[in-house]
Design a protein around this nucleic acid. Structure first.
Lengths: 157, 157
DNA sequence: GTCCTTGATTTGACTCGATCAAGAAAACCG
DNA sequence: CGGTTTTCTTGATCGAGTCAAATCAAGGAC
């Protein structure tokens, strides 16, 4: 599997290094990992890996288009390898869990704003907020970040 | 205009204080202000206002449903008074300018994910990324945060 | 109008995510 | 197998945001 990583790294002009392969492997196993998770996991195969190295690797991967950075409001940045397909995310308000969601609508009416106010839009980002199954059944996993929730509007109409 | 602020504060069980009125007035003038902007602007009418007070005021307003917090990726949090209508935002990659965009689509197909992966969704958040008019015409306002831009997918299909 | 209780603000320290910079190490080319 | 360039390590630094104790003000009671 790492052979593919090597090719992909070279394809975007990046050198093939152990930290990069380690980070790529972690991201392949954990689709939405934050930096701390990546460092911890990657150290299983590369114990001397530093957090700053991971930041550097991730920035290189994102710049090269091999990874994508997502930043749910109020949470540290997460990284994923799924790039190219413009999929969206479900985020749990309680535990912060993230799940991918493919947009099943080809032409997305709501994603081409009628009044762009002079902006040239090149990307539309959608985040669905809610509660994951585990948190919903009364098991607020580990971190209960949003104990009380103020609803204001519901799901877009 | 402050009479309305007073009513609104009382309506959600909050005391009417100078910091709160100041912050509300600033938000009414600047629809998408960050904390620093609010502090600076509010000090024109309340010079001793502390940043922490603004944080407290904003949290109270958000909790009470009078304000909404938006956090564009990579930028400090912004606050706005438009609540209740689930409108979306255009964000400039270069200068960070934010503009409101009303969703013209009543039923939003793309905003009800087909596979919710066990999540109970209560809000859909949409952010349109692009360049504002000023930054597009070669005047990258002040902070050029994203000099080179890697496009990866365009506007959702 | 004044007092009192509760809630809000001030002040200061502190946490956490992320970035920057200089030197050491490694990857790739020939 | 060197040489050059990129990348990683190490350590300091920054900024947004939070926490906690003490002070202060708002608003109802008297």
């Amino acid at each position: 599997m790492e052979a593919t990583w090597q090719e992909q790294l070279r394809a975007v002009g990046l050198r093939v290094t152990r930290p990069r392969l380690s980070v790529l492997q972690v991201l392949a196993e954990r689709p939405h990992a934050d930096v701390d998770t990546i460092v911890t996991a990657a150290r299983e195969v590369h114990p001397t890996l530093s957090p700053q190295a991971v930041y550097g690797v991730l920035q290189a991967l994102v710049t090269g288009g091999l990874a994508r950075r997502i930043e749910p409001a109020g949470a540290p940045a997460l990284f994923e390898l799924r790039v190219g397909d413009n999929h969206h995310h479900l985020v749990c308000r309680s535990c912060g869990a993230v799940a991918d969601v493919d947009c099943t609508v080809g032409a997305a009416p709501c994603l081409t704003p009628s009044d762009t106010a002079g902006f040239v839009v090149d990307e539309a980002e959608v985040v669905f907020w809610g509660l994951c199954r585990d948190c919903r059944v009364g098991k607020p996993s580990e971190t209960t970040k949003v104990p009380e929730h103020h609803d204001r509007g519901g799901v877009h109409e």
